[in-house]
Write a protein that binds this DNA or RNA. Structure first.
Lengths: 229, 229
DNA sequence: GATTGACTCGTACATCGTACGATGCGACTA
DNA sequence: TAGTCGCATCGTACGATGTACGAGTCAATC
C-alpha cells in the first residue's frame, strides 16, 4: 500500500560518531531502524504485556518522536507481526548433519517452540489473530521435511503436521493462560471451591500439574500414532 | 471491588407493557439486563470481530446510554469474559444415561467444543488472554470425570486431560487463524511462492487440508495412547 | 411527603492510533 | 556555489475509545 519504506531501510551508514559534539542532551540515541524498533517492542511486550505496548511508549524508549516510527512501519499491527515472528526464530538442532534421529529432531524443534513462546507470554495471545510469519512457516516447513524424510506417506503428512502443530499450540496457550498473576490464580481457586468441580479439585489439575511432563508424554503418544517405527 | 451490582440484577419485573403509550420514539427497548448485554455482545462480536466491539456500539444496539452498561458490568473486560463463556456452554451428549461408551462421550464433547469456537471465530483469539470461565471448567470437569470412569489411573489423569485439551485448543485456534479474509489468504500464498517452502507447497498444507479429518485422526491417536482398551 | 435504593445517562477527560505537512540533511547535478 | 531530490524525523491535530463522576428518574417503603 504505502510506497514509503524502501529497500535500504535501516541500513543507513551506522553514523560513525567519532567527531565532535559527543555531548548532547539525551545522550544521542543511535538512528532508528526496523531492527531496533522490533527489539524494543519485544522488550516492552515482555515488560508490560500486550496492552503495555503503545506507539508512544515505544517511541519514548527509542528516544524518537512517535511519528518517526511510521516511516519504518505501516502501522501498529505490523509491529505486532514483526515482534511475534522475531521471537519464533529457530536455529535448528545442535548438530547440523542430517541425522537419522528424526524423532529427536522433531521433539527438539517443538520443545524449543514451546519454550520460546513461554519465554514471551504475550506471544500466545497474539498468535491466534495474526497471520503466519516466515519463521512460523519455516518451522512448518522443517517439520514437514523431517516427517517426510522419516517415511511418513504423503497421504498422511498433513494429518501428522496439523496434529503436532495443534498439540504444541494448545499446550503453549494453555500454559500461558495459567501464568497469570497470583490474583487471578486466587480467583480461579475461589471459583473452584464455591462452585463444585470435585474431580478437578481432587486431581489438583489446575494447581500442580506437571506441565512439562504432560507435554512430553502427550507428544510421545501422538508421535507413536502418527509415524512408523 | 465495586459494590454496585446486586443479586437481583436483570431480574427486574419484565415490565408488563400492556397499558397505554404503546407508541414511543425509538420503539421502547426492553430494560437492560446482563443477559441482554451478553447476547448483544456476542452478536456484535460475530458480526464485527474483536475490534468491532466497543462500549458505544454495544450501547447503541441495546438502545441505551453508554454508561448504563457500567451498572451491570464492571468494565469491558468483563463483557469479553461473559461473552466468551456464554458461547462455550455444553449441554451434554444426546442420551443422558451413563453409557459405557466413554470414548464416544469424550469425542462428542470435544467435537462440540471445537464446533462452538469455530462458529464464533473471535473466541479463539480471546481465549488465550482470559481466565477460565465456569463453562470451560465444567467441560474440564466432565472430561476428567469421564476419563476417570473409563479407568484412567489417577496418576495419568492430568496428563490425559491436558493432552486432549491442548490438542483441541490448538486445533481450534489454528483453524481460526486460517479463516481469514481472502486477501490474507492471497498474501499467504504470495509469501509461499516468493520465499521458498517447497514441502509445504507440494503438500498444499495451507490450502486444502482436510481439517476435520485431520482433527479426528489426531484425536484418535491421542486417545489410543492415553486410555486403555 | 420524605427517604431510599435500583437503575439510567450526559458530560468530561486522558489516552490511543495515525493523517498531514513542515523540517533537516546528505548526495547528487548544473 | 546554488538548486534539487530522496531519505528520515517529528509536532500538531483529529477522531475514537474506556470509563470516572455526578445528576437524574422512578418505584417501593416508611
Amino acid at each position: 500500500m504505502a510506497v514509503k519504506r524502501n529497500g535500504t531501510q535501516g541500513k543507513r551508514s551506522q553514523r560513525i560518531s567519532v567527531s565532535l559534539q559527543s555531548v548532547q542532551e539525551p545522550l544521542s540515541e543511535p538512528p532508528l531502524s526496523l531492527e531496533r524498533i522490533v527489539a524494543t517492542a519485544v522488550e516492552l511486550l515482555d515488560a508490560q504485556g500486550v496492552d503495555g505496548l503503545t506507539m508512544r511508549r515505544l517511541a519514548d524508549r527509542l528516544g524518537s518522536g512517535v511519528m518517526s516510527l511510521y516511516w519504518h512501519v505501516d502501522n501498529k499491527e505490523e509491529v505486532f507481526d514483526l515482534a511475534l515472528d522475531s521471537v519464533l526464530e529457530y536455529r535448528g538442532p545442535p548438530q547440523m548433519v542430517e541425522s537419522q534421529d528424526w524423532r529427536g529432531e522433531v521433539v527438539h524443534m517443538l520443545d524449543d517452540w514451546r519454550a520460546s513462546m513461554l519465554r514471551h507470554p504475550w506471544s500466545a495471545s497474539l498468535l491466534p489473530r495474526r497471520a503466519l510469519g516466515p519463521n512460523i512457516l519455516g518451522r512448518l516447513e522443517l517439520l514437514s521435511k523431517t516427517l517426510s524424510r522419516a517415511g511418513v506417506a504423503d497421504t498422511d503428512l498433513n494429518v501428522a503436521i496439523w496434529s503436532l502443530w495443534n498439540y504444541v499450540m494448545g499446550a503453549t496457550i494453555t500454559r500461558g493462560s495459567f501464568d497469570l498473576s497470583d490474583d487471578d490464580r486466587a480467583a480461579a481457586q475461589q471459583r473452584l471451591t464455591s462452585e463444585r468441580y470435585p474431580t478437578i479439585e481432587r486431581s489438583r489439575l489446575l494447581l500442580d500439574s506437571d506441565w512439562d511432563g504432560a507435554f512430553r508424554k502427550g507428544l510421545d503418544f501422538l508421535l507413536d500414532g502418527l509415524a512408523p517405527g
